[in-house]
Simulated assay, not measured.
Amino acid sequence: MKIFLTTLIIITGILTCLNGLAQCSFTPTITPSQPILCPESTDTLMTQMYDSYQWYKGNNPIPGATNQFYIVDGNDVVEEFKVAATLDGCTEFSDAVLVDGYVFLLPYVIQSGDMGVFDPDTYTTILCTGDTLKLELGLPYSENIQWYDDGSEIQGANNQIYYVTESGSYYVCGAPEVCPDYLQCLGVTIDVQFVDPTPVITLNNDELIATEADSYQWYLNGDAISGATDPTYIPVISGSYTVMTVNQYGCEGISEPFEYFTTGVETSSNNMFYISGSTHEQISITFPQPFSGTLTLFDLSGRALMNKKTDNKIYVSLDVSAMPVGIFFIKMENSKGVSVAKCIKN
Protein backbone atom coordinates (compact mmCIF):
# COMPACT_ATOMS: atom_id res chain seq x y z
CA MET A 1 0.00 0.00 0.00
CA LYS A 2 2.87 2.37 0.79
CA ILE A 3 4.44 1.52 -2.56
CA PHE A 4 1.22 2.44 -4.42
CA LEU A 5 0.83 5.74 -2.59
CA THR A 6 4.44 6.64 -3.21
CA THR A 7 4.07 5.90 -6.93
CA LEU A 8 0.88 7.99 -7.12
CA ILE A 9 2.58 10.94 -5.44
CA ILE A 10 5.50 10.76 -7.90
CA ILE A 11 3.20 10.61 -10.95
CA THR A 12 1.12 13.51 -9.60
CA GLY A 13 4.28 15.57 -9.15
CA ILE A 14 5.42 14.85 -12.70
CA LEU A 15 2.04 15.92 -14.13
CA THR A 16 2.18 19.10 -12.08
CA CYS A 17 5.59 19.93 -13.54
CA LEU A 18 4.48 19.16 -17.10
CA ASN A 19 1.46 21.40 -16.65
CA GLY A 20 3.76 24.23 -15.67
CA LEU A 21 5.73 23.75 -18.94
CA ALA A 22 2.66 23.55 -21.22
CA GLN A 23 2.15 26.08 -24.17
CA CYS A 24 -0.14 29.13 -23.81
CA SER A 25 -3.76 28.66 -24.63
CA PHE A 26 -3.42 31.04 -27.61
CA THR A 27 -1.27 31.34 -30.74
CA PRO A 28 -0.75 34.83 -32.20
CA THR A 29 -0.90 35.25 -35.98
CA ILE A 30 0.19 38.07 -38.25
CA THR A 31 -1.86 39.61 -41.04
CA PRO A 32 -1.23 39.94 -43.86
CA SER A 33 0.44 36.55 -43.91
CA GLN A 34 2.23 37.22 -47.24
CA PRO A 35 2.85 40.97 -47.43
CA ILE A 36 4.14 42.30 -50.77
CA LEU A 37 5.14 45.96 -50.85
CA CYS A 38 4.85 48.30 -53.81
CA PRO A 39 7.93 50.46 -54.36
CA GLU A 40 8.04 53.51 -52.10
CA SER A 41 5.12 52.19 -50.02
CA THR A 42 4.49 50.76 -46.53
CA ASP A 43 2.31 48.06 -45.02
CA THR A 44 1.09 47.34 -41.51
CA LEU A 45 1.66 43.98 -39.82
CA MET A 46 -1.11 43.32 -37.29
CA THR A 47 -1.77 40.67 -34.62
CA GLN A 48 -4.63 39.98 -32.22
CA MET A 49 -5.24 41.89 -28.99
CA TYR A 50 -3.11 40.73 -26.03
CA ASP A 51 -1.62 42.28 -22.89
CA SER A 52 1.77 43.14 -24.39
CA TYR A 53 3.86 42.68 -27.52
CA GLN A 54 7.42 42.54 -28.81
CA TRP A 55 8.13 42.46 -32.54
CA TYR A 56 11.17 40.74 -33.98
CA LYS A 57 13.09 41.20 -37.20
CA GLY A 58 14.65 37.84 -37.82
CA ASN A 59 15.54 36.69 -34.33
CA ASN A 60 16.33 40.14 -33.02
CA PRO A 61 13.82 42.18 -31.01
CA ILE A 62 13.07 45.55 -32.58
CA PRO A 63 13.64 48.33 -30.05
CA GLY A 64 10.42 50.16 -29.23
CA ALA A 65 8.25 47.83 -31.36
CA THR A 66 5.80 46.97 -28.58
CA ASN A 67 2.44 47.80 -30.17
CA GLN A 68 -0.22 45.52 -31.59
CA PHE A 69 1.02 46.51 -35.04
CA TYR A 70 4.31 47.16 -36.78
CA ILE A 71 4.82 49.21 -40.00
CA VAL A 72 7.23 47.84 -42.61
CA ASP A 73 8.67 49.68 -45.63
CA GLY A 74 11.05 49.16 -48.53
CA ASN A 75 14.00 48.65 -46.19
CA ASP A 76 12.27 45.58 -44.77
CA VAL A 77 11.83 43.68 -48.03
CA VAL A 78 13.09 40.04 -47.90
CA GLU A 79 13.17 40.17 -44.10
CA GLU A 80 11.18 37.90 -41.75
CA PHE A 81 9.07 39.29 -38.90
CA LYS A 82 7.36 37.68 -35.92
CA VAL A 83 5.74 38.86 -32.72
CA ALA A 84 5.88 37.64 -29.14
CA ALA A 85 2.50 38.21 -27.48
CA THR A 86 1.84 37.95 -23.74
CA LEU A 87 -1.56 37.24 -22.18
CA ASP A 88 -2.16 36.55 -18.48
CA GLY A 89 1.57 36.11 -17.93
CA CYS A 90 1.94 33.55 -20.75
CA THR A 91 4.09 34.51 -23.77
CA GLU A 92 3.82 32.88 -27.20
CA PHE A 93 5.54 33.54 -30.56
CA SER A 94 3.75 33.79 -33.88
CA ASP A 95 4.98 32.12 -37.03
CA ALA A 96 7.33 34.36 -39.01
CA VAL A 97 6.12 36.14 -42.15
CA LEU A 98 8.36 37.16 -45.04
CA VAL A 99 8.00 40.70 -46.34
CA ASP A 100 8.34 40.69 -50.12
CA GLY A 101 8.28 43.53 -52.65
CA TYR A 102 7.41 44.21 -56.28
CA VAL A 103 10.20 45.19 -58.67
CA PHE A 104 9.33 46.75 -62.05
CA LEU A 105 11.22 47.58 -65.20
CA LEU A 106 11.52 51.25 -66.05
CA PRO A 107 8.74 52.53 -68.35
CA TYR A 108 9.34 51.97 -72.06
CA VAL A 109 7.45 52.84 -75.25
CA ILE A 110 7.01 50.63 -78.31
CA GLN A 111 6.93 52.53 -81.63
CA SER A 112 5.14 51.26 -84.73
CA GLY A 113 3.06 52.50 -87.66
CA ASP A 114 4.80 55.07 -89.86
CA MET A 115 8.32 55.01 -88.45
CA GLY A 116 9.81 57.77 -90.59
CA VAL A 117 13.53 58.50 -90.46
CA PHE A 118 15.51 59.01 -87.24
CA ASP A 119 17.93 61.94 -87.29
CA PRO A 120 20.81 61.04 -84.94
CA ASP A 121 22.06 64.63 -84.87
CA THR A 122 18.86 66.01 -83.35
CA TYR A 123 17.47 62.76 -81.88
CA THR A 124 14.29 63.49 -83.81
CA THR A 125 12.01 61.20 -85.77
CA ILE A 126 11.14 62.82 -89.10
CA LEU A 127 7.75 61.95 -90.58
CA CYS A 128 5.85 63.04 -93.66
CA THR A 129 2.68 65.08 -93.41
CA GLY A 130 -0.21 62.63 -93.24
CA ASP A 131 1.83 59.90 -91.51
CA THR A 132 0.83 58.43 -88.14
CA LEU A 133 3.30 57.21 -85.52
CA LYS A 134 1.89 54.73 -82.99
CA LEU A 135 3.29 54.95 -79.44
CA GLU A 136 2.44 52.23 -76.92
CA LEU A 137 3.39 52.27 -73.23
CA GLY A 138 4.73 48.81 -72.38
CA LEU A 139 3.38 46.55 -69.64
CA PRO A 140 3.02 46.44 -66.69
CA TYR A 141 2.24 50.18 -66.84
CA SER A 142 -1.48 50.12 -67.58
CA GLU A 143 -3.05 52.38 -64.92
CA ASN A 144 -3.30 56.16 -64.38
CA ILE A 145 -1.75 56.85 -67.78
CA GLN A 146 -1.16 60.38 -69.03
CA TRP A 147 0.58 61.39 -72.27
CA TYR A 148 2.39 64.73 -72.54
CA ASP A 149 3.50 66.99 -75.40
CA ASP A 150 6.17 69.62 -74.70
CA GLY A 151 5.56 69.13 -70.98
CA SER A 152 1.81 69.76 -71.12
CA GLU A 153 -0.90 67.16 -70.58
CA ILE A 154 -2.65 65.99 -73.75
CA GLN A 155 -6.34 66.11 -72.94
CA GLY A 156 -7.99 62.69 -73.17
CA ALA A 157 -4.67 60.88 -73.83
CA ASN A 158 -5.03 58.33 -71.03
CA ASN A 159 -4.67 55.01 -72.85
CA GLN A 160 -1.62 52.81 -73.35
CA ILE A 161 -1.64 53.70 -77.06
CA TYR A 162 -1.26 57.21 -78.44
CA TYR A 163 -1.25 58.13 -82.15
CA VAL A 164 1.08 60.98 -83.10
CA THR A 165 -0.01 63.12 -86.06
CA GLU A 166 1.63 66.44 -85.17
CA SER A 167 5.14 67.62 -84.43
CA GLY A 168 6.02 67.65 -80.74
CA SER A 169 8.09 66.30 -77.86
CA TYR A 170 6.23 63.39 -76.29
CA TYR A 171 6.51 61.34 -73.09
CA VAL A 172 4.14 59.35 -70.89
CA CYS A 173 3.57 58.48 -67.23
CA GLY A 174 1.72 55.47 -65.83
CA ALA A 175 1.53 52.92 -63.03
CA PRO A 176 1.34 49.10 -62.79
CA GLU A 177 -2.08 47.58 -62.13
CA VAL A 178 -0.92 45.98 -58.85
CA CYS A 179 0.61 49.26 -57.64
CA PRO A 180 -1.62 52.01 -59.10
CA ASP A 181 -0.05 54.70 -56.91
CA TYR A 182 3.49 53.93 -58.12
CA LEU A 183 3.51 56.50 -60.91
CA GLN A 184 6.55 56.41 -63.19
CA CYS A 185 7.40 58.50 -66.26
CA LEU A 186 9.36 57.75 -69.40
CA GLY A 187 12.88 58.97 -68.81
CA VAL A 188 13.31 60.52 -72.27
CA THR A 189 11.16 62.45 -74.72
CA ILE A 190 10.20 61.17 -78.15
CA ASP A 191 10.79 64.13 -80.45
CA VAL A 192 8.78 64.05 -83.67
CA GLN A 193 8.84 66.46 -86.60
CA PHE A 194 6.44 66.34 -89.52
CA VAL A 195 7.68 67.82 -92.80
CA ASP A 196 5.42 68.98 -95.61
CA PRO A 197 6.74 67.39 -98.83
CA THR A 198 4.56 69.54 -101.11
CA PRO A 199 6.85 71.25 -103.64
CA VAL A 200 6.28 74.76 -104.97
CA ILE A 201 6.86 75.84 -108.56
CA THR A 202 8.24 79.27 -109.39
CA LEU A 203 8.95 80.88 -112.76
CA ASN A 204 12.27 82.47 -113.62
CA ASN A 205 13.01 83.61 -117.20
CA ASP A 206 10.60 81.10 -118.74
CA GLU A 207 12.07 78.29 -116.61
CA LEU A 208 9.95 76.39 -114.08
CA ILE A 209 11.81 75.74 -110.83
CA ALA A 210 10.78 73.29 -108.09
CA THR A 211 11.75 73.51 -104.45
CA GLU A 212 14.72 71.38 -103.37
CA ALA A 213 14.19 67.61 -103.21
CA ASP A 214 16.01 64.35 -103.92
CA SER A 215 14.06 63.39 -107.05
CA TYR A 216 11.63 65.02 -109.48
CA GLN A 217 9.03 64.19 -112.13
CA TRP A 218 7.33 66.94 -114.13
CA TYR A 219 3.80 66.67 -115.52
CA LEU A 220 1.87 68.56 -118.17
CA ASN A 221 -1.91 68.56 -117.86
CA GLY A 222 -1.67 65.51 -115.59
CA ASP A 223 0.58 63.44 -117.89
CA ALA A 224 4.19 62.64 -116.99
CA ILE A 225 6.74 64.37 -119.24
CA SER A 226 9.26 61.78 -120.39
CA GLY A 227 12.77 62.55 -119.15
CA ALA A 228 11.67 65.61 -117.15
CA THR A 229 13.32 64.58 -113.89
CA ASP A 230 15.46 67.64 -113.07
CA PRO A 231 14.80 70.38 -110.51
CA THR A 232 13.98 72.75 -113.40
CA TYR A 233 11.96 72.42 -116.58
CA ILE A 234 11.70 74.73 -119.58
CA PRO A 235 8.17 74.50 -121.00
CA VAL A 236 7.61 74.87 -124.72
CA ILE A 237 3.81 74.97 -124.78
CA SER A 238 1.14 76.49 -122.61
CA GLY A 239 -0.54 74.25 -120.08
CA SER A 240 -0.97 73.19 -116.49
CA TYR A 241 2.35 72.01 -115.06
CA THR A 242 2.91 70.10 -111.83
CA VAL A 243 5.92 68.39 -110.31
CA MET A 244 6.15 65.38 -108.03
CA THR A 245 9.13 65.22 -105.67
CA VAL A 246 10.62 62.91 -103.06
CA ASN A 247 12.58 64.65 -100.30
CA GLN A 248 15.54 63.41 -98.27
CA TYR A 249 13.23 61.65 -95.81
CA GLY A 250 11.39 59.69 -98.48
CA CYS A 251 8.29 61.92 -98.35
CA GLU A 252 6.47 62.19 -101.67
CA GLY A 253 4.52 65.30 -102.63
CA ILE A 254 2.99 66.92 -105.67
CA SER A 255 2.73 70.64 -106.31
CA GLU A 256 -0.30 72.75 -107.03
CA PRO A 257 -0.84 73.23 -110.78
CA PHE A 258 1.17 76.05 -112.33
CA GLU A 259 -0.52 77.58 -115.36
CA TYR A 260 2.13 78.48 -117.93
CA PHE A 261 1.48 80.54 -121.04
CA THR A 262 3.90 81.08 -123.88
CA THR A 263 4.31 84.64 -125.11
CA GLY A 264 2.08 85.79 -127.91
CA VAL A 265 -1.54 84.94 -128.60
CA GLU A 266 -2.54 81.32 -128.78
CA THR A 267 -5.89 80.31 -130.24
CA SER A 268 -7.19 76.93 -131.27
CA SER A 269 -8.01 76.08 -134.85
CA ASN A 270 -11.72 76.46 -134.21
CA ASN A 271 -11.23 80.13 -133.15
CA MET A 272 -13.13 79.76 -129.90
CA PHE A 273 -12.87 83.44 -128.97
CA TYR A 274 -11.02 86.68 -129.54
CA ILE A 275 -10.40 89.82 -127.52
CA SER A 276 -12.16 92.78 -129.05
CA GLY A 277 -10.86 95.38 -126.61
CA SER A 278 -8.71 95.91 -123.52
CA THR A 279 -8.59 98.99 -121.30
CA HIS A 280 -7.57 99.80 -117.74
CA GLU A 281 -11.16 99.10 -116.63
CA GLN A 282 -12.30 95.96 -118.48
CA ILE A 283 -11.48 93.30 -121.01
CA SER A 284 -14.12 92.57 -123.64
CA ILE A 285 -14.31 89.10 -125.15
CA THR A 286 -16.47 88.12 -128.11
CA PHE A 287 -17.22 84.54 -129.17
CA PRO A 288 -18.06 83.59 -132.76
CA GLN A 289 -20.98 81.57 -131.44
CA PRO A 290 -22.74 81.20 -128.07
CA PHE A 291 -20.25 79.92 -125.54
CA SER A 292 -20.75 77.91 -122.34
CA GLY A 293 -17.65 77.27 -120.27
CA THR A 294 -15.10 78.83 -117.95
CA LEU A 295 -12.89 81.89 -118.34
CA THR A 296 -9.82 82.20 -116.09
CA LEU A 297 -7.52 85.22 -115.84
CA PHE A 298 -3.85 84.55 -114.88
CA ASP A 299 -0.84 86.75 -114.22
CA LEU A 300 2.63 86.02 -115.57
CA SER A 301 3.48 83.79 -112.60
CA GLY A 302 0.56 81.48 -113.42
CA ARG A 303 -1.51 82.64 -110.45
CA ALA A 304 -5.24 82.61 -111.10
CA LEU A 305 -6.70 86.06 -110.46
CA MET A 306 -10.27 85.65 -111.68
CA ASN A 307 -12.57 82.82 -112.63
CA LYS A 308 -15.87 83.32 -114.43
CA LYS A 309 -18.39 80.84 -115.76
CA THR A 310 -20.54 81.70 -118.77
CA ASP A 311 -23.64 80.06 -120.16
CA ASN A 312 -24.56 80.49 -123.85
CA LYS A 313 -22.91 83.92 -124.15
CA ILE A 314 -21.63 85.73 -127.25
CA TYR A 315 -20.06 88.60 -125.35
CA VAL A 316 -18.34 88.67 -121.92
CA SER A 317 -16.76 91.59 -120.10
CA LEU A 318 -14.15 91.09 -117.34
CA ASP A 319 -13.71 93.84 -114.75
CA VAL A 320 -9.94 94.40 -114.30
CA SER A 321 -10.12 97.80 -112.61
CA ALA A 322 -8.63 96.36 -109.43
CA MET A 323 -5.80 94.63 -111.28
CA PRO A 324 -2.32 96.18 -111.53
CA VAL A 325 -0.96 97.33 -114.87
CA GLY A 326 0.75 94.51 -116.76
CA ILE A 327 0.42 91.44 -118.96
CA PHE A 328 -2.25 88.83 -118.32
CA PHE A 329 -3.42 85.60 -119.90
CA ILE A 330 -6.99 84.51 -120.44
CA LYS A 331 -7.78 80.82 -120.66
CA MET A 332 -11.09 79.68 -122.10
CA GLU A 333 -12.11 76.09 -121.46
CA ASN A 334 -15.17 74.02 -122.36
CA SER A 335 -16.01 70.61 -123.79
CA LYS A 336 -14.52 71.60 -127.16
CA GLY A 337 -11.06 72.34 -125.81
CA VAL A 338 -8.84 75.07 -124.38
CA SER A 339 -7.65 78.36 -125.85
CA VAL A 340 -5.30 80.93 -124.33
CA ALA A 341 -4.74 84.59 -125.26
CA LYS A 342 -2.49 87.32 -123.95
CA CYS A 343 -3.80 90.76 -123.06
CA ILE A 344 -2.21 93.92 -121.66
CA LYS A 345 -3.65 96.33 -119.14
CA ASN A 346 -2.27 99.84 -119.67
Rank of each mutant, 00 (worst) to 15 (best):
L21C: 11
I110A: 14
S278T: 15
I225K: 03
T211H: 07
I275Q: 00
V265F: 00
G64Y: 02
G222T: 06
S269W: 06
Q23I: 06
I327R: 11
D76A: 11
I330L: 15
G227M: 06
P290G: 10
V320C: 09
C38S: 11
I30W: 00
L318M: 07
I154F: 12
C90V: 05
N19I: 13
Y249N: 05
G250L: 08
Y170T: 06
D149K: 10
F104E: 08
I3T: 14
A22T: 14
D76L: 03
K313Y: 01
A228T: 03
V164R: 02
Y70F: 15
M244P: 02
P290S: 11
M323I: 09
A322Y: 01
F287I: 00
S167E: 07
V83M: 02
F69V: 12
M46Q: 15
N271R: 08
Y70S: 09
G293R: 03
S238F: 00
V325A: 13
F81A: 08
Y171V: 00
V192R: 06
P28D: 04
P235Y: 02
N221S: 14
I285E: 08
S278K: 04
M332T: 05
I201S: 00
E266M: 04
Y108H: 14
V78Q: 13
Q289I: 01
Y123S: 14
Q289W: 01
P235I: 09
I145E: 04
V77A: 14
L318R: 07
N312S: 14
F26T: 06
I71V: 15
Y56A: 03
Q160H: 08
C38H: 10
S226F: 12
D181W: 12
T6K: 13
L106V: 13
N159A: 14
F69H: 07
T198Q: 11
S142N: 14
S301Y: 03
D121W: 10
I283D: 02
F118Q: 04
Q184D: 05
F273K: 06
S269P: 01
A304S: 15
V83G: 11
F81G: 02
